[in-house]
Amino acid sequence: MSRPVDSPARRSQPTLKTIAQMTGLAVTTVSRALNDAPDIGQATKEKVRGVAKSIGYRPNRAGVRLRTGKTNVIALVLSSQQDVIGHAAQLVYAISDELKGTPYHLVVMPYAPDTDPLIPVRYVIETHSADGIIFNQTMLNDERVRLLTQENFPFSSHGRTEMGISHSYVDYDNGAYADLIVRELVRRGRKNLVLVPPPLIQSYAHHMAEAFRQTCAALGIKGAILSEFSADHDIDDIRAGTFAALQADSSIDGIISATTAATIASVDAAESSGRRLGHDIDIGSKEVSNLLRVFRRQLVLVREDTTEAGRHLARALLQQINEPDAPLVCNLSVPTAADILPGTPNG
């Protein structure tokens, strides 16, 4: 039985030389265009990428690493216990989308919430398995920031620290969010609020809790933080804990939440306790995916653009990798009254 004759395309994969021949450019120019070199014009980059895509060119990662020392990989380090219907999913999508058209690919590295978050970071540094790292759940004193800075390893964090270390970050001003949502609930007549906080070890929880306390005190209303559990707990635990608080204090008329899952659990707890949204109680939350607007129109929601945050994180990290002497990118998104989404008013 005769063997089928392979076509040239099947016998060998297209190479940089193939693209060079098809475009009339030097191999080095093709390589630099595919690697988004700043001294290569945009028209040339688009021409090279178009040809590469049309012929199915894929870089040989082993060869790239030998020639450049780069992996063309970005590692996104996430806890496996995440608000997957909110922040984490949006971050993965946004970073992946931002990397389109670049030589970089995203690898998500999950770690168990009961393990040391330094473990995946050390692994990437020691194995040189990525050119840069993005991580979230940043803490005020974060050993990942310290280690990556000491190793001079490119990274960008979703969240700020208070360590006296300059580093790239993208953050949402959760203090401004807490102040904004407390004032909005008070405007609607609420006088006894509780906060379902993120884990208080995380920096955004610290900013949120401090502003919640300060604004409640400034406005002369009651405000309590439900510290027995956090917004990262199992949704059944959040529901049970919030329900218990509502049963223990019938005067609670407002709940502020930190995540989509915690908000859904809080709504169930409030309704199970006999309270009506927009009448007996208001629940405020950040909205990252438009899910909550559909879930309950009576919710008081403040927009947080996690997709844009993911894009900024990717851009900040790529700049560190490609322009190591450029100033670090630090981006803080501050919500205002214009970010309060319209819903169904009290009535």
Rank of each mutant, 00 (worst) to 15 (best):
P4I: 02
R11T: 04
T18G: 11
A20V: 05
L25C: 10
A26Y: 09
T28E: 12
S31K: 09
A33E: 05
L34C: 01
L34M: 06
N35H: 13
D36I: 05
P38E: 08
K47P: 11
V48Q: 00
G50P: 01
A52V: 00
S54K: 08
R61V: 09
L66Y: 00
T68S: 13
T68Q: 13
K70D: 08
K70C: 14
S80V: 05
D83T: 03
V84A: 08
Y93M: 03
A94D: 00
A94I: 03
A94K: 03
T102C: 10
L106M: 14
T115C: 08
D116I: 03
D116K: 09
R122T: 10
H128I: 14
A130S: 05
E143F: 07
R144F: 07
T149G: 06
Q150H: 12
P154I: 02
F155G: 01
S157N: 01
T161G: 12
H167G: 06
D171S: 09
Y172D: 07
L180C: 06
I181F: 10
V182R: 00
R183Y: 03
R187K: 14
R190G: 13
K191P: 01
V194W: 01
L195F: 03
Q214K: 15
K222F: 05
K222R: 15
I225L: 02
S227K: 12
F229Y: 11
F229C: 06
A231C: 08
G241T: 08
Q247D: 11
S250Y: 09
S250I: 10
S251F: 02
D253V: 05
D253W: 04
A258R: 01
A262C: 05
T263H: 02
T263M: 01
I264N: 00
E271I: 08
E271W: 07
R276I: 15
I281Q: 04
I283N: 10
I283W: 07
V288C: 02
V288S: 12
R296A: 09
R297T: 10
G310Y: 01
N322E: 13
P324L: 02
A326V: 12
L332E: 09
A337M: 15
G347I: 07
